[in-house]
């Protein structure tokens, strides 16, 4: 395996959890709900995933538990912002803090317990292609899942009636309600999908990337996923670009540090965040200051029955 192949492989593994979490949040935001608690849902997924995987010995059960944990937290958030119409920013921040705290409790018995990570799957034939094969088609199932999610969500939002209705709820809840759509139910389902994706992204961290539990192991990836949604201007394919930009810079700065580039390591470690902020600013400027955000994003909706 060449160095280039190795770098590309690590870029993919660094980008995949960001992409999965971002695509889930993207769907929730297109329905008009801003869930800032991605970090909390993600780390609960990581904790529940490793806990169940170690207890049962089954990776599949771990993944399922991670998804359910993310959805459970999303359901709590939905109860607050949809059922009680509380402020979405405040509730989202609370959810992030709550998830970080609770995950520490759930994960405590499993600190430092080593575990075999989920292996990679080689796609027959395609993985034999020189260079591209090992990079693209000898990956773990999460990588394939992330691209299946992007394709699925892009198709759903752009081509299906249900996706159109979901976008309508994000553009104007009152108008969608006036047409007779169940805005709160649609937003609830979108939030659950976002929670499931965040949980799955968490499982990737604790079951594949670093297959053991340490508290706070998401280390801000949930927040980056939120930034990627804005970066992507709420379009699924651009989320791929955003996730891989951030993941790519993360890995490249590691290699640069390894190669002895004379820059303080702290500055290097900050580079992905700086690059992401720069890219966001440049995109906003190029768009002339306007926003591509769903018009009703973050606005609570209370049907007047």
């Amino acid at each position: 395996m060449t160095l280039l192949e190795a770098i590309l492989l690590t870029v993919i593994t660094a980008s995949t959890p960001l992409l999965i979490a971002a695509i889930g949040e993207l769907v929730a935001e297109r329905a008009g709900v801003l869930n800032l608690g991605v970090e909390g849902m993600m780390i609960m997924g990581a904790a529940a995933g490793i806990a169940v995987a170690i207890t049962t010995g089954s990776s599949a059960a771990g993944v399922a538990a991670a998804i359910l944990a993310g959805m459970a937290l999303a359901a709590i958030f939905a109860l607050l912002v949809l059922g009680l119409a509380t402020n979405q920013v405040a509730a989202g921040l609370a959810l992030a803090i709550f998830g970080l705290g609770l995950s520490g409790v759930v994960g405590a018995p499993f600190v430092g317990v080593p575990r075999e990570g989920i292996g990679k799957i080689a796609v027959p034939w395609l993985s034999e292609i020189p260079f591209l094969g090992p990079v693209l088609f000898r990956q773990d199932p999460f990588v394939y899942a992330s691209f299946a999610l992007v394709i699925g969500v892009a198709w759903f939002l752009g081509r299906t009636r249900a996706g159109l209705v979901l976008r309508a709820c994000g553009e104007s809840a009152a108008a969608a309600h006036a047409l007779g759509f169940k805005v709160l139910r649609i937003r609830f389902l979108a939030l659950l999908f976002g929670g499931a994706c965040a949980g799955l992204a968490g499982a990737y961290l604790s079951l594949v990337l670093t297959p053991f539990w340490t508290s706070g192991m998401t280390s801000g990836r949930g927040w980056i996923a939120l930034a990627i949604v804005v970066f992507a201007s709420w379009l699924p394919w651009r989320a791929v670009a955003g996730a891989y930009l951030f993941g790519g810079v993360t890995i490249l700065q590691l290699h640069a540090q390894g190669a002895g580039v004379p820059v303080p390591p702290q500055a290097m470690a900050a580079l992905p965040y700086v690059i992401t902020i720069l890219a966001l600013v440049l995109i906003m400027r190029a768009r002339g200051g306007g926003s591509a955000a769903p018009a009703a994003l973050g606005t609570p909706f209370v049907p007047d029955r």
Binding site: R161, R167, E171, L179, A295
Partner: peptide, 17 residues
């Protein structure tokens, strides 16, 4: 007060209804 979705096309707005 128009119950239209500004970011969508005319056909999409009609299809929704």
């Amino acid at each position: 007060h128009f119950s239209l979705f500004d970011a969508m096309s005319v056909a999409e707005n009609v299809a929704l209804a």
